[in-house]
Design a protein around this nucleic acid. Structure first.
Lengths: 243, 243
DNA sequence: TCTCATTTTTAGGTGCACCTAAATCCAGTT
DNA sequence: AACTGGATTTAGGTGCACCTAAAAATGAGA
């Protein structure tokens, strides 16, 4: 309720992670939280009780966790920091998109309001980070247009990559090799049965990708037989420069 | 001795502070350390014992503290981070010179090697930070040409500002108002007795400054009656833009 | 409705960096 | 050589975020 709860780094990480899990799975359990944060489940329980005391989450034992509006606001602030920093490091300092997540995880907690606003201005108040994730604005508003998993597309469908998971840097390097970035055009050519690989065309280049990988890639579906669905050659400029 | 001591944020702050005190006072006592870090003297004693165990300092109870070569190396790394960050924030993001110390105090501990090297390259491997403090190079080498305190100059002497204390941001705003930056030319006109104010000319403008303040300003002495000692009008460009 | 594997919480404990209060050391008078 | 005030260390304690092990609740299938 009151604005003036003292939020430290640990709390910020919990709230951010709760937000992300809520975003992806709907419900948030202490076990999922613990797994995501690499801590023991009992540690999560303890901390959640504290967050509940601070009015940052509501918590019903055995039933799950939900962010309060205040908790959500803090989570979105951290996310804003994270994503602006990621983009800044790519745009202003030429870091690779697979390096920036790790760096942002640390910087997001210590950067001042004043500095983050300068970065936001420098970047021209961008809407998405280098992995396609939407950047909350100063007031905690997010454009969340999630898209669908590439893995859920059928043969012949096409789309534009909207977002990829930023947590696994090895995966990001591999995606870069394949030419998979936000805004890349993809067409599903063929799907092998039994969790086999998917054959797709990326900006006109034919590739095979493992179905598990395709679950980490989100696309905006294009109507079949639009012109976009016939192997448009235009490459995404901004991001592919930073391999 | 071994390289692989796990150095955390607290340890980095201790080593940095010990370095700074050693630089300024020669000897380092637990009490001075505690005062500088705003902690209880007993806390400093405890931590110093730990640092000694880790071979980062040598410590003789009641006699003082000294950095080992390894401790010194860590301190200089942190200092390098601090000063590069300060300069970067001024140069690349237009922050004021009185804001950047506070920001750098937090960023210095979490920034990666890779990012700091990018920043160093971006800045062209600069020699000094916005307050004139020398930036250690990647291998821990520092150019320390300290200069003398403005407060120690006599009437008629002149010099070029080499460094000012970066810790007090209110003071920095005041110095900016007076036109006192690194590279500003100063001539001492008159010194009032009994710790009174000093009358000086800064880039040709006559000002009064309190003697205590003059102890935080370091200058490189110019021979009297050089041309530089006759109120050269040229202003320092880079820094005075960021008031 | 009962059973039982899984999830979740409770109980008790750790290391860390800090604290206050009390004891001890040290150096400069007398 | 004893005194004494300031510097320094020791002793004992705190909150925090984590841990392991054990107990308890849940809910899905028999």
């Amino acid at each position: 309720m009151r604005e003036f709860v003292k939020v430290n780094e640990a709390i910020e990480d919990y709230l951010k992670t709760i937000y992300n899990i809520q975003d992806e799975h709907g419900k948030v359990s202490t076990t999922m939280l613990a797994k995501q944060m690499n801590i023991a489940p009992s540690s999560a329980t303890g901390m959640i009780k504290k967050l509940a005391r601070l009015n940052l989450v509501t918590y019903e034992p055995y039933r799950g966790i939900q962010l309060t509006s205040h908790g959500r606001k803090v989570a979105l602030e951290v996310l804003r920091h994270h994503r602006l920093i990621e983009l800044y490091l790519v745009e202003a300092l030429g870091m690779r998109w697979d390096e920036v997540h790790h760096e942002a995880e640390k910087l997001e907690h210590v950067i001042s309001k004043s500095l983050i606003e300068r970065i936001d201005s420098y970047l021209g108040h961008p809407a998405v980070d280098p992995h396609g994730a939407p950047i909350p604005d100063r007031h905690g508003k997010v454009e969340s247009t999630p898209g669908v998993k590439l893995a859920d597309l059928k043969s012949g469908q096409c789309g534009v990559v909207s977002e990829v998971n930023d947590r696994d840097s090895e995966m990001l390097r591999y995606l870069a090799e394949l030419g998979i970035f936000p805004n890349a055009r993809i067409k599903v050519l063929n799907i092998a049965p039994f969790q086999g690989p998917m054959s797709i065309s990326i900006e006109g280049e034919e590739r095979l990708i493992w179905i598990e990988l395709a679950k980490s890639i989100f696309v905006k579906l294009l109507p079949e037989n639009t012109e976009g669905c016939r192997d448009n050659q235009q490459k995404n400029k901004n991001v592919s420069d930073n391999l």
